[in-house]
């Protein structure tokens, strides 16, 4: 039995890889999202990785680990990194963890 509460859509354009996450990010879904983004990061070799969280309806601390992990990976390989669309509760979680001081948030 498996359930999928979250989805990630990946688009590579003009050397920018955008990963648009939708649904509920928890520990159950985080691993698959992580693997999909990391595989795309490897194959697309972009200059910038944007995580769009506008479609996220729920996120617990698994989402913090997911985003911090992608930020760290991007930093390691010299890829710019930003998060878009983190509003309301999702943004509150990032601020609570102090990630607003590390990660660039856009729009």
């Amino acid at each position: 039995m498996d359930t999928k509460n979250a989805d990630v859509k990946l688009e590579s354009k003009n050397n920018i890889l955008t990963a648009a996450i939708s649904g509920e990010i928890d520990h159950h879904c985080a691993k698959n999202i992580r693997q999909e983004i990391d595989a795309a990061l490897l194959s697309a070799s972009p200059n910038k990785l944007i995580i769009n969280m506008g479609g996220v309806t729920f996120m617990d601390s698994s989402g913090l680990g997911l985003i911090l992990g992608r930020y760290t990976k991007a930093e390691e390989i010299g890829v710019q990194f930003s998060v878009q669309g983190a509003r309301g509760r999702v943004r509150q979680m990032f601020d609570m963890a102090g990630l607003d001081r590390i990660i660039t948030f856009e729009g």
Binding site: R34, S61, S62, L64, G65, L66, L68, G69, M96, A97
Partner: peptide
């Protein structure tokens, strides 16, 4: 404690108890 985790390799943030408490 915030950010304390025994499972960093699986990208656990160590914020679980902090979230519950907050």
């Amino acid at each position: 404690q915030p950010l304390y985790t025994t499972d960093a390799e699986n990208e656990r943030s160590g914020m679980g108890f902090t979230v519950m408490d907050s």
